[in-house]
Write a protein that binds this DNA or RNA. Structure first.
Length: 156
DNA sequence: GCCAACGTTGGC
DNA sequence: GCCAACGTTGGC
């Protein structure tokens, strides 16, 4: 069963344009158990909304797709990395990441306040007060609405 | 910069 | 296992 997701990224750290240049990237640095567990549920081909957080403005910036399933996040083993995890070992990794591939940049960037004004998006995790989860599931209905708003292709 | 809403840590 | 203190996320 194909599912849909949303990931947050600070554009100053890794923006949709960077993903467009790279083509694909390992989604490293997620250090939240719920987010990790959701990444473990991702399948190759699942679509992923790409959200710019902590931005001016924040909002939906594009679309990606899962190009490889969850595997140990290499940054946890690197003492020089901000994401180093002293409790982890290669025998017992703690953090995983998927690989994401670029699909499209939003033809129309959709800011958060616009999303909030769409009644059909009620209940979307992103719009929940205090929502901080950086990896979230998105229902097919919500995905379809957001793609329409953003001018993202109906077929990836 | 403020602060609400979390998640994590560590003392007990 | 409880929970207070602390740290982080992310909108505003």
């Amino acid at each position: 069963m194909k599912r849909a997701w949303l990931v947050k990224s600070e554009p100053e750290g890794y923006a949709i344009d960077q993903l467009a240049r790279d083509g694909k990237t390992r989604w490293t640095g997620v250090r939240n158990y719920l987010a990790r567990n959701l990444m473990r549920e991702m399948a190759v081909g699942d679509l992923v909304l790409f959200y710019h957080s902590n931005a001016e403005p924040s909002g939906i910036a594009g679309l990606a797709r899962v190009s490889a399933i969850a595997a140990p996040d290499e940054t946890q083993f690197d003492p020089k990395s901000d994401y180093f995890e002293p409790r982890a070992s290669r025998a017992k990794p703690i953090w995983d990441c998927v690989e994401l591939a670029f699909v499209a940049k939003a033809k129309t960037f959709v800011p958060l306040d616009v999303l909030r004004r769409v009644p059909e998006l009620d209940g979307m995790e992103l719009l929940r007060k205090g929502s901080r989860l950086s990896v979230q599931p998105v229902t097919p209905a919500h995905l379809a609405i957001v793609r329409k708003l953003a001018g993202l292709p109906a077929k990836a």
